[in-house]
Design a protein around this nucleic acid. Sequence first.
DNA 1: TTGTAGGCGTTATCAC
DNA 2: GTGATAACGCCTACAA
Lengths: 329, 329
Amino acid sequence: MPTIEDVAKEAKVSVATVSRTINNNGSLSDKSRISVENAIKKLNYVPNMLARNLRRSESRVILALLPNISNPFYASIIQGIEDTAIKDGYNIILCQTHSSLEREKSYFNLLKQKLADGIINMDPIIDNSFLLDISEKYPIVQCCEYSDELNIPYVAIDNKGAAYRAIEHLISIGRKSIAFINTDERFMYARQRKEGYLQALSDNRIEFRSEWVVNTNDDFECAQRTFKYFLSLNKKPNAIFAVSDILAIGVIKAAAEASISVPEDIAVIGFDNIPDSKMCTPAVTTISQPMYNIGCEACKMLIRKLMQDENIPNKVLEVELIIRGSTLK
Amino acid sequence: MPTIEDVAKEAKVSVATVSRTINNNGSLSDKSRISVENAIKKLNYVPNMLARNLRRSESRVILALLPNISNPFYASIIQGIEDTAIKDGYNIILCQTHSSLEREKSYFNLLKQKLADGIINMDPIIDNSFLLDISEKYPIVQCCEYSDELNIPYVAIDNKGAAYRAIEHLISIGRKSIAFINTDERFMYARQRKEGYLQALSDNRIEFRSEWVVNTNDDFECAQRTFKYFLSLNKKPNAIFAVSDILAIGVIKAAAEASISVPEDIAVIGFDNIPDSKMCTPAVTTISQPMYNIGCEACKMLIRKLMQDENIPNKVLEVELIIRGSTLK
DNA sequence: TTGTAGGCGTTATCAC
DNA sequence: GTGATAACGCCTACAA
């Protein structure tokens, strides 16, 4: 492997001149530049990043923390992060925490060891005090899920407003008995969407019944179980707002099995616009987040932080209501 | 950030002794070791990996190349790779190629730049001559999809045998009109599974009809279209072997829409045992590959290569037939 | 515009 | 068993 010195010899200049050519900084005559470029080509020289990184004391690696990559929710966000990172010469290491604190800590070690420069956190489970601790020592931004008190910049959507719109849509197709399947309210998104649900009911003077609100895990089986529970009630809802598409799809499947027709008997609206929401029969009406952009913005934000830019404003992106078969009139 | 030198001063020894303590090599008195350990704790010292990597001329990073991470097929494999890598102090960078040669090349640059030590390739699209080129300069192993001529070690399953078993299962439940939905036969798995299909038919003296074999893209819509095509035939199959679960699920959905009952009218068997295959109604009979293990083995293989171990044997792992509702008698 | 030389934080060789 | 010290390959004052 040729080094910068080999190139210098070949080009009959000093290593400083070669370095200046490579990094395109400092003043430099055309003559030198050209002869260096030729030497580089001739020798097939590629700078050794291990050396550069040591010298510059950076790794050009960004950590993207998320619960797990098989959740389709994250696919486009990751894409946005990666595309943005690569453009600026950063590499991404995806860190699946599986919501285990131990894993998380092992990833933070990469920062201490200088193997990573900063973190984009998408894991909602992280302990706040831990996060705060990290944020004092290393560049970090929050993506999607965030904590407001933390004073760590975030990019997210207006969950409350989005939920509000979902409910108004159900109302607009004539539904007034609206149930809500939520997940764990330790998650900010769950709390915020619930607020939107409540607000919309109240603003439209629609009856709130506590037995129509259920908290479950974000999976298929729970959705099906919850649906059966709704059926067992004396007063049954005629619309369901599911806090995620996974849940919405589970509900729709359970309805099919129980020969309840969607949307006639029960309208269903989800959240996230995951690919499966289109596949479902009927297809799921849902709220679409600008995933790719969320990823881009989060990454840009972190890169600004890495450049020592202080005072970075939070970013709240717009969502879109996508009306499909599960909420036709 | 304290350096090894700070530790040395604190412990009143030389940096060499500190280094020996950290890396646990060379001879060393208990007294030195203990005082170094105390100094490390006291100063909160963490070795700078950028420096170590430069010195050792390695990055401890492994590249995992795959078409894209949202394909659930890869989830467990990746997990296996990561778990194995971390155990040996390696980090994984997931490289989504989106089957673009340009992307691939940019990832190979990481090798040239010394930012990565080796590659686990899962992308079936890669150009063989390109792959060969890489393999001459850098450690690489093939995972799942492979090319036999290449003399690059691989870990995979016996696709032909697995397909053979799938067909025999269909025969065992009394089906003799067996169609086959395959993907692009540039993929080795597609070619091998087709061989298994043909072999099983011929061994069991079952009629082969070329109009019962269709090549399509590996997605939902194509599966549905193909199913309709089968229905349009004069002589319709009463069983379908889909080369992937995605296709099998698409077929089952199309059947439901056409009011054709599965498995009574048409039995369906898939391949891969992706999570959705359980969710489907009826659930899909399928061939399960030991994904997690495939990942582990591929990673172990690469690590052996990184240790200069030559002459590494290929590894072929066993599959499992999982019988579910879509092929009941 | 160009070159010399010191240093980034390790590891590893070689004396002692 | 221990300590000096020379690399690893690059960047960047500083001087010329």
